[in-house]
Design a protein around this nucleic acid. Structure first.
Lengths: 406, 406
DNA sequence: GCAGAATTGTTCTAGACCCAAACATATTAT
DNA sequence: ATAATATGTTTGGGTCTAGAACAATTCTGC
């Protein structure tokens, strides 16, 4: 009879929860900070330095981090080596939009190694978006297999996404309904895949690497061609809600008797504050946020100014609500909402201070987004990094399954 | 030379984080469920049954739980003894209101052992409220010292409370501003004291013991004589925000050009939906929620019905916003908001389903609050139980300091 | 330059803790 | 009554972390 556990299989034994937890802590710190000395890691974790030594040794052996010679300057005492995230550990990111599908490769530490934008003639269907993504990934396959260890694929979708099963419940601007995109892409590529709302992932990216770095409570609002999306971080955690739908600040009520919205209600922020109306008034029949920013900075039309003031007023109402409800440290405005804010920052700050409640309003700061076009890639990749970071030593176990034929 | 750690002092050594975490897990489970068999605890925690045996043994020795003979019915196999929270472990609860200060004694498991309502002639000042509370507690002192182990005092205040330092930033209906009530009561009684917003604590109480039991995401809204308070639970955690001010759903914007509110804005839920206006229209010059419920159930006045419909409309808007932003599983309505809801539940449910977004609206359920008048006591006590539950074995270390003279 | 202080890596040991296995116990099913 | 099932109890082993002692490396003061 075979003994229940041979020596060979013992190598794959999973570690104690305590060890897993500590490895997770260290890996996450390195991922979020980019570089940290071993001494800094010791202080951040509160672990003994002998323990940190052992753990880092294991992470180096696993190829998840590497150490470099200490800079050796300024400090008294023996210099501490720097610990870096391994660039060969990476996640794939996919972001379907109305006019393109962008695929990215993001390595540990949040560095975007590759970004490929595939412009589409028309709005892509879910099947088309999956096909485009899997084709691009197939093209990178040999490089991925030789030079990277891929933790999985994260997909950032502009719409309501059930985070548990990766089904897009409704993406109005893409015209998708009940599309199981995570499963589709997973079957097409063989990589584990997860999907979430794009603005939620943007919030996470800005929290970890961007304007809100270090804050525990922030609200991220993104205004784009297809409306306003939002993500909320509370106590360092993204608000998910029962099914991962949380964060739809774009559908905050801001006006009695306002226009009716595709969501079924009236007077939503998204219908009253829109980029397309601003573009129109600025005389830009077609254009994106960058064009708008230029046009508004130079425009002196009263009509444009009135519309800007009107939209700012509604934005103020939504922000006031959000501040009262969440008491955040920071609000990060991205896309054309950042543009709007930049036109009258003192006014927005002032209205917020006077209209929101005493306590919460006093400490909130408004920022423009910092990560630019890499944001969605970083956020989507984070979706694939999260399970890896929870159990870094278990990476080898989630092997890629064979992709479906066809 | 003395050795660095004598045998005598070794007895007070603190356990490993792992042990502390497991003890915390078990104690919390017993506290929240009231009674659980050891077998159930084994399943819930995922720990080995030998480990659970050791841990329960330690908790019994510490006097935090006790075991009773198994019921012995139905199940195959050896019966598993029941584990109960010790009623001698308790927290004090204090709830100042405009017309009274209520002091309670709540034992582990959320059982209210005592509740003393001290009616005041006029609105109590912070100092008066503290004096009343400390006097009542002084009266119970001998009983507390002999029969209970007190984890601390929790204070539920109707207003903005900074949870970190226990300072009431602003309680408009009490007329308090920047009152360090937690420190005041702690100095007066010698017990550690924490303070928080009353509705936030109500939300936690309803989550753990009441209508939302078992849910991870719920919104609690309470309507009383002094306005509308709210608390939000996300992923099993109360939303605190940067300073513990989060949850002010009462100041959601629901009406353009609405009345101005004491908070500085206009069109707040709290100004448009108010108990006092309903009482007035119902012909009750003075009265509370119970009176209102009776009056509305029998009233056939068109004026009253119109006002009810109007208030329900605004409540709908606030609920729609909240559902879009939080994607909760449950909304719990307390006070006169529960009364309002009971007048037309299908209508509210229907409006919510059509006005809120597809995904989040589909799964939310609205409940009336379940805990009644014990709610505030249980919620406030939870504030004092939380640090205890995080480290149950450390209870003995937080000894009461000598109360200030006077 | 050189001695001393300061800080951190490294090695070794011991203690805490959890799990698994074997055994014991109590109840239901046949 | 006997078997099956579920659970408490005891014991031994392996993992993991902290702590102490020592080594390494840099800065400071003279």
């Amino acid at each position: 009879m075979m003994p229940p556990r041979t020596l060979a299989s013992a190598a794959a034994r999973e570690p104690d929860p305590s060890r897993r937890n500590n490895l997770s802590l260290l890996t996450s710190l390195v991922h979020h900070h980019g570089v940290l000395s071993r001494a800094q890691l010791t202080r951040h974790t509160g672990l003994n330095r002998s323990t940190v030594g052992t753990l880092i040794g294991q992470l180096v052996t696993l190829g998840l981090v590497y150490e470099t010679a200490p800079a050796g300057e300024g400090q008294v005492g023996r210099p501490s080596p720097n610990v870096h995230p391994s660039p060969s550990v990476a996640a794939l990111a996919v972001n379907p939009e109305v006019d393109a599908v962008t695929i990215g490769l993001v390595s540990l530490g949040g560095k975007v190694q590759k970004k490929i934008r595939f412009d589409t003639e028309r709005i892509p269907s879910a099947r088309e978006a999956v096909n485009i993504a899997s084709a691009v990934i197939a093209g990178m396959r040999s490089e991925l297999d030789t030079s990277y260890r891929i933790t999985g694929i994260g997909m950032a979708v502009p719409g309501l996404v059930n985070r548990d099963d990766g089904v897009v419940r409704h993406a109005p601007h893409l015209g998708w309904r009940n599309e199981p995109v995570a499963r589709m892409l997973s079957e097409a590529t063989g990589y584990p895949c997860q999907a979430a709302n794009d603005a939620s992932l943007g919030a996470e990216a800005e929290l970890i690497f961007g304007a809100g770095a270090g804050q525990g409570n922030l609200i991220y609002l993104n205004g784009g061609a297809s409306g306003i999306g939002g993500g909320i971080i509370s106590d360092g955690q993204l608000l998910r809600g029962a099914s991962g739908y949380a964060g739809e600040i774009g559908h905050t009520f801001v006006r009695s008797g306002g226009k009716s919205c595709h969501c079924g209600a009236t007077g939503c922020l998204e219908t009253e504050v829109s980029q397309s109306r601003l573009l129109e008034l600025a005389g830009l029949s077609r254009g994106d946020t960058a064009d708008l920013e230029k046009a508004l900075a130079t425009s002196s039309s009263a009509e444009v100014n009135d519309e800007v003031a009107r939209q700012l007023m509604f934005l103020d109402i939504a922000l006031r609500n959000a501040v009262n409800i969440f008491n955040p440290e920071a609000i990060v405005l991205d896309g054309f909402l950042g543009t709007l804010y930049a036109l009258a920052p003192e006014s927005v700050d002032g209205v917020l201070l006077s209209q929101a409640m005493d306590g919460p309003a006093g400490q909130v700061k408004i920022y423009r987004a910092a990560l630019g076009s890499d944001l969605m890639m970083i956020g989507a990749a984070e979706l694939a990094f999260t399970p890896f970071l929870a159990d870094p030593a278990g990476l080898g176990t989630t092997t890629r399954t064979a992709p479906a034929a066809g």
